[in-house]
């Protein structure tokens, strides 16, 4: 029909879209590379005194040093690793629990659906951080694992509610009814029709939740409930920099920049991937 016109109109959007994807790939890729690098090499020993206290950024210490004279850039690099573990871990846990419960709720009888929907709403009404603190308290020891698990559980309610709403919309579509009238079993409906069609929206939400999980882990660490020292979580670096923020502001700025680049990168990446995976858009390329 008007394919020609649309192609012409879509061209500027195409370049903007690949730009989104590329910037996202670059930022996330940078963090992943740095995180992998820290497994084999860091500029300095993260726990050793390598310079004077609270030094400003210099060629020797790109992000300066903390109040114990440790190199901040090294700690921020290790922080990447922790942020990625927490982000991916929490989202993986949230996706597993949340998507399962959400789909179950959309398929369930009205009675069970009401109960599940109410449960999601109540869980969402609790602030994520508070919920995570409860879970950490329940595991009785603050560790990287308990923080990840806590955030994963806290986020799963949000994912479950979104999944439920998206799934209900798709399940009311004619092609689902048509597949059911043709005798499709429910696993076939879920895996062939439902999940592929709600996946783009879920993926974007996962990226968003990834960012929130990284920030929430920083908050948990800031409160002393995250990964314990010597794990240099960005949140703990921010917490430590708090006391000296007037004399050595870069101690707070540097981990802040790291946090922001990862969260923005993840969001851009998800947006780009969603559009790249959409056949109606891909077809116009």
């Amino acid at each position: 029909m008007s394919g020609q016109v649309e192609t012409a109109a879509a061209r500027p959007r195409l370049s903007r879209r690949s730009l989104t994807l590329n910037i996202g790939l670059f930022l996330v890729g940078m963090h992943v590379t740095v995180a992998l690098l820290t497994l084999v090499w860091t500029p300095y020993d993260p726990t050793g005194m390598t310079g004077g206290r609270l030094e400003a950024p210099s060629w020797a210490h790109w992000a300066g040093t903390d109040r114990l004279g440790r190199d901040l850039f090294t700690q921020i690099m290790i922080g990447s690793r922790i942020a990625l573990i927490v982000g991916f871990g929490a989202v993986a846990i949230a996706a597993t629990i949340g998507v399962t419960l959400g789909v179950l709720s959309a398929f369930a009888t009205r009675y069970l659906d009401d109960i599940l929907a109410a449960a999601f709403d109540i869980l969402i009404a609790f602030p994520t951080l508070l919920l995570a603190m409860l879970v950490v308290a329940a595991t009785e020891s603050a560790s990287l694992f308990s923080a990840t698990l806590a955030l994963g559980i806290a986020i799963s309610a949000i994912v479950a509610r979104l999944t439920r709403i998206l799934a209900k919309r798709i399940l009311s579509m004619d092609y689902i009814t048509a597949a059911r009238t043709a005798g499709a079993s429910w696993p076939s409906i879920v895996f062939r029709h439902l999940l592929p069609n709600i996946w783009p929206m879920l993926a974007v939400n996962f990226a968003l939740q990834f960012g929130l999980a990284v920030i929430a882990e920083a908050s948990l660490s800031y409160l002393g409930l995250g990964a314990p020292p010597p794990n240099a979580s960005w949140g703990r670096l921010l917490q430590e920099a708090q006391g000296t923020v007037y004399t050595a502001p870069f101690g707070a700025i540097a981990p802040g920049i790291a946090l922001v680049t990862l969260v923005i990168g993840m969001n851009l990446l998800a947006d780009g991937l969603r559009e790249a995976g959409d056949p109606t858009r891909r077809g116009r390329q």
Partner: peptide, 8 residues
């Protein structure tokens, strides 16, 4: 419009 799965 809605009779077919848009992604298949």
């Amino acid at each position: 419009l809605t009779a077919l799965n848009p992604l298949m």
